[in-house]
Computed example of a mutant assay.
Amino acid sequence: MIPFNKPFLIGNELEYIKESVSSGKISGNGNFTKKCQSYFELNLGVKKTLLTTSCTDALEMSAMLVDIKPGDEVIVPSYTFVSSALAFVRQGAKIVFADSRIDHPGIDEDLLEDLITPRTKAVVVVHYAGVACDMDKIMELSKRYNFYVIEDAAQAIDSYYKGKPLGTIGHLGTFSFHETKNIICGEGGLLTINDDRFVDRAEILWEKGTNRSAFFKGEVNKYGWVDTGSSFLPSELIAAFLFAQLENLKMIQKKRKEIWQAYFEGLKELEENKNLKLGIIPEYATNNAHMFYVITKNQLERDELISFLKNKGIHSVFHYLCLHKSEYYKKISEPKELVNAQKYDQCLLRLPFFYELSNEEVKFITNSIKTFYGE
């Protein structure tokens, strides 16, 4: 079986974990945490970054930082992972779900303005497959209507919008290093802070509501409980693994882009023949080769393709189920129709994609899909 995903080692992951243990400190905010955060601050050009145990934690910190309260509205795309909405629901927000674009699973920027009300506190934009949303349109609306923009860049490391790294354009950004992402450490995340107002408080939330970070920097002579927060810091073991991957980011990305291109070359004929559709990359965006997906004509065809590939020893998967149709959301609000999001829910199929996927395996997968449509 060719798996959908496979974790990998590429450099000094195990050596750095050993080094961390030998140092006598494996709890959070140690040497490797600082190395990772410095790397991101330098390469992303943001004011402050904080490693977290997951992208979900980074989103929860974002909800706290923009001071979401009961009655506030937060606009979120329906076609996304539950964390994009859950982090704000936990603070009491009412979620207003947005549809996807007709040509891409990302949020439809042109429909956003109709969803904004005087209670809109934030908009969460998800850069699906690492492909940028039109951030100029979104930030212009943010200025006009005075709401915060949180970039859910879970899939978007090393991806850009008009030359600017994703996760650095909105007020706050969040990344994931889950084992299915380009850069991995099992579970892990990052909060990027692009607004000075949030820097000091973010460190307090990160350190369980204490001013412990200020104490270690010598800014106060003792620390205590000063705000809300949680234990959002990852272990040094996670940070050590992550830093080894960051050292090899260029190599990882080069290989992933080669895999993506091989898929594209192998399947573009099927798109030309209108058997299926491939993902698009708008001219303002870059491709970080986070995933490769195809869009079938309908759900039955997708399910049959999944079964066909499974019989060939290939593990392919569908992706998100629309949040506005979820059991939880139906308990608290009347579901509405979001035509494009529902199309991706029913027709989008992700193909195996991981660093060690070979050219021969990609060719076998693409030929198997051609066989399916030939039959």
Rank of each mutant, 00 (worst) to 15 (best):
I2H: 01
P3F: 05
P7L: 03
F8E: 04
I10D: 05
I17L: 04
E19C: 01
S23D: 00
G28P: 00
N29W: 00
K34S: 00
Y39K: 06
Y39L: 05
E41K: 11
G45R: 09
G45P: 03
V46K: 04
C55A: 15
C55D: 15
M64R: 13
P70W: 06
D72K: 09
I75R: 04
P77K: 09
S78A: 11
T80L: 08
S84C: 12
F88T: 01
V89A: 12
V89C: 08
R90P: 10
I95V: 06
F97N: 02
F97Q: 04
D99P: 09
H104F: 09
D110C: 10
L111H: 10
L112K: 01
T117F: 09
T117P: 03
P118L: 04
P118D: 09
T120Y: 12
K121D: 01
V123L: 13
V126L: 10
H127Q: 05
Y128I: 13
M135R: 06
K137P: 02
I138W: 03
M139P: 02
L141M: 09
R144Y: 13
N146H: 13
V149P: 01
I150K: 06
Q155Y: 15
A156R: 03
I157H: 03
Y161T: 08
G163L: 05
K164A: 05
K164Y: 11
L166D: 01
T174L: 05
H178Y: 09
H178C: 11
E187C: 12
L191S: 02
L191E: 01
I193Q: 02
I193D: 00
I193L: 10
D200L: 12
R201P: 03
A202Y: 11
E203G: 03
T210Q: 08
R212Y: 05
F215E: 01
N221L: 14
G224S: 08
D227W: 07
T228F: 08
T228R: 13
S230H: 07
S231G: 08
S231R: 07
F232G: 01
S235F: 00
A239E: 00
A239V: 00
L242A: 00
L249S: 11
L249T: 05
M251D: 15
K254C: 12
Q261S: 12
F264A: 08
E269T: 14
E269V: 15
E271R: 05
E271H: 11
K274N: 13
G279S: 15
I281C: 08
A285W: 01
N288R: 05
H290R: 11
Y293K: 12
Q299E: 14
S307M: 14
F308W: 14
F308G: 07
K310A: 15
I314P: 07
H315S: 14
H319A: 15
C322F: 07
H324Q: 13
E327V: 07
Y329Q: 07
K330I: 06
K331W: 03
I332C: 08
E337A: 10
L338R: 02
N340L: 08
Q342F: 12
K343M: 13
R350Q: 11
R350G: 06
L351G: 08
L351M: 08
Y355K: 12
Y355L: 15
Y355G: 02
F364C: 11
F364N: 13
K370F: 08
Y373H: 12
E375W: 14
